[in-house]
Design a protein around this nucleic acid. Structure first.
Lengths: 188, 188, 188, 188
DNA sequence: TATGAATGAGTATTCATTCAT
DNA sequence: TATGAATGAATACTCATTCAT
């Protein structure tokens, strides 16, 4: 009498709970107990799906960056690189209004990257893909590949920095406006 | 067991040890024991100077941002705003090569800001002063105050974002070159 | 490591261990570690049932006085008040021979009452019920209620004082004889 | 250049501070730091006069019972034993109104007696002298020595028990009236 | 698959005691 | 005689992890 496989339900349930708890208490400060409670499961149930806390953290970290890379695929078509980026910024900005705590947990992972080689590796890979995507977009618009690489790095830095300021201001800031203005300036 | 040190030397001794340990293990992961060991003191001695771990963390956080604000005062004189910023970037970049772990602990504080209101307040104040200083520099160069405020925010975001990428790449990146190129573009 | 016990058996198991350890080392001197060891549990298990040491102390204190109040219900029927009290003293005296350390922990609670308002409140309530029960017994025998209240207070004081002397002499004293002789004198 | 011997000033200063702190926090809960602060001395200074905390506790315990034995010498002359005891009770009662916390620390010592053989020995000696003094008073009044011993024990128990109730009621009780009434009844 | 109960290995914090001055 | 500074040895409390059911 096989029971239905609930994994595909449980995993997002757990990861979502973990994101919330990690954002609130920090990765190291979060208790498995609280993740379980948030997920509406027993603590032991978490261990059915993740070998230990580290594995859970890693899974969330991967999901976090995977989701961010997914967002890159949403860069829309358009006339100029500037246009396309500005349209994309609007999408990202809208997404940020929701799931603000998903942003917060991102800073947890950056802090982790500062002390954990594996985490740093993941973060690095993410930024490399991020920059490649932006660079490709610039090349599409006629920029020389070597110039595009540099410019892409500036753009990524700018957007990440604005994200940082946005968080510091508890989201009380017009992310999209500043980002579009900055990107436009960088590309002018 | 002689006591060669005077009490007023203990504070920097402890803060410096804390910075190192917090950078290595994270604020929450750091053990008071390790801070003490790094400082060459007994654990109880730490408690003579800081009521508890939170107080120590807060003290370091304040010192961290105070030091960064100090750095703003080093913005040199020069012809144009761009010139002055580029000269300053060189100073900051040189400082970053040293005390790299002092940068790492900064990300700890950003993560803290994500979950702790007091920490976020401190971070916010820091960025406000940071932006004001940059804006002043732009106004000195003839920019309209309202434009300067926006542009300063872009510049701060860019520099913080580059710092972030620099950390992700373990410092293996030409911070100064990218920062100067980006700032120049933003101001062109 | 099998778990033969059910949860509802843990509470008496822990309280009994606590009584022993508190009697031996004092409430403040007792280590949770030792309570756990005495109870045959891990320290963490104690915390599953009591939030902290204070809660455990309070629970034992309440159980202690509750048990003593139970004993009052055993006051037997008889001809005169003196008779009934003497019969009861024999019961109490017999009980004291057992569980001598349960007496010792009582003095811990009295000392606590000297410094802790909550504990003092509990002790006070206990003595009030104690006196009421004795007074009722005197009224049953025809004494005026106002006289009974005073006389009851004297009787309670006498019995508590004898208990004190009994403890000072390590139990090497005829509690019942002295108590009966004293009570008889007070009521003559 | 010999400095004046301050011992005879310091000792009562320290013991008095210790009594206060022990009464407030319990013997085991009291911190040497607090005793020092209360005495207006440095912690290390306490150690000039007492080898360690145990020695300080013992010294206070001895002083406590010595003072109580001193009080026995104040039993005044009078016609009957009852008269003399009643007069003495008034003295004791008056003294209790002052230095109430000195009573509280007494319960600390009783609790100590429950767990420490040395303390119990001291307490026992005290009660024996106490009973002897009362017995002598009864013999003076014509009672047979063997009867006097028993009756003295009852009286001591009664007075100690009333003291206990008095403490439980935070001193809000007419000690003298109850004590005199009880003693009179015991001797009638 | 799911969990209540249990615990080993920590971790922050405290405090009696010491000692150079 | 007196103390500020320091510490070793505790001790209450926590939490990731396990496991019998």
């Amino acid at each position: 009498m096989p029971r239905p496989d609930r994994s595909h339900e449980r995993i997002p349930q757990i990861l979502s709970a973990a994101a919330k708890v990690f954002a609130a208490d920090g990765v190291q400060g979060a208790r498995m107990d609280d993740v379980a409670k948030e997920a509406g499961l027993s603590k032991a149930a978490i261990y059915l799906y993740y070998k230990n806390k580290d594995a859970l953290v890693l899974a969330l970290l991967e999901q976090f960056f995977a989701a961010n890379l997914e967002a890159l695929k949403l860069i829309p078509q358009g006339n100029s690189a500037t246009d396309r980026l500005c349209l994309w910024i609007d999408l990202v900005s809208a997404a940020m209004q929701q799931g603000a705590h998903f942003q917060t947990v991102g800073f947890e992972f950056l802090a982790m990257a500062g002390r954990d080689t594996d985490a740093r590796q993941k973060v690095l890979e993410f930024y490399q893909e991020y920059q490649s995507a932006i660079a490709q977009l610039l090349v599409d618009d006629g920029m020389l590949p070597s110039d595009a690489a540099n410019k892409a790095q500036e753009i990524v830095a700018l957007l990440e920095g604005i994200n940082l300021l946005w968080m510091a201001q508890s989201g009380d800031m017009d992310f999209a406006r500043l980002a579009k203005s900055g990107v436009t300036a960088l590309l002018s």
